[in-house]
Design a binder for these strands. Structure first.
Lengths: 121, 121
DNA sequence: CCGTATCCTATATGATACTG
DNA sequence: CAGTATCATATAGGATACGG
């Protein structure tokens, strides 16, 4: 986005986006979809490096359990953000990657990262 | 941000941001801070219109209870994202608005809204 | 009008053990 | 290796009533 916008210009731009023809809000359902302690982190990790295997993902998400990771991945797959590919070799393994829909979340992380750099570090 | 970037260029840019001198991730703590069923929605509503009073906010956040809204607002205030101003007139009221730190979250919502428009509507 | 106090419930997450 | 099954727990959020 154009970084020279003032806050008010920016807000107006966002507001105009929000007033979709049907009057629906395009933010709420996205926020809904990304809810949970780990989901954003999982997508984020896959943004940085993909594909990742179940075990690799688990190691990066320090503290997550099998159950929770498994559930989160299934939901992300159902929402079409993550692609799961199973390899029935020896030893068997599974690779997770982002779909195009999932990759398109990257601008969101970019915005988050910039905010974090400004206000946390 | 520049919208002509390819995904790979974009990812590289994000990755370079992520590798801060200390090696800390600027995304994780932000995601942490914004967690909860209502927080993003509250900030989002204040982005669109501010100031908002407790009751107005409650009406917009359909279904939220006093307790939950109160807790969320206090935490947002503690994190320096929201400013609370109390007017001891008759009738008394309180106005909530965004701090500069909170307003700077707007690019994040912009990114979310764009994604939502592309994939939901 | 803007909350807090209290209690309650649901949902998300965690631990451990075990299987295709 | 990548999970599932089972059970346990923590935390967030909800309902109601009341107070500054």
């Amino acid at each position: 986005m154009d970084e020279t916008l003032t806050y008010d210009e920016f807000r107006e731009k966002v507001s105009s986006i929000i007033l979709t023809p049907g009057g629906n809000c395009p933010v709420t359902p996205v926020v809904q979809m990304l809810q949970g302690k780990w989901k954003l982190q999982i997508i984020y990790d896959l943004c940085i490096k993909e594909p990742l295997r179940f075990g690799e993902l688990k190691k990066r998400l320090d503290g997550i359990t099998n159950t929770t990771l498994s559930n989160a991945l299934r939901e992300l797959e159902e929402d079409g953000l993550v692609h799961r590919e199973q390899f029935n070799e020896i030893p068997p393994h599974v690779e997770y990657s982002l779909t195009e829909k999932g990759r398109d979340l990257l601008p969101i992380f970019y915005a988050i990262a910039k905010w974090g750099l400004k206000y946390i570090f």
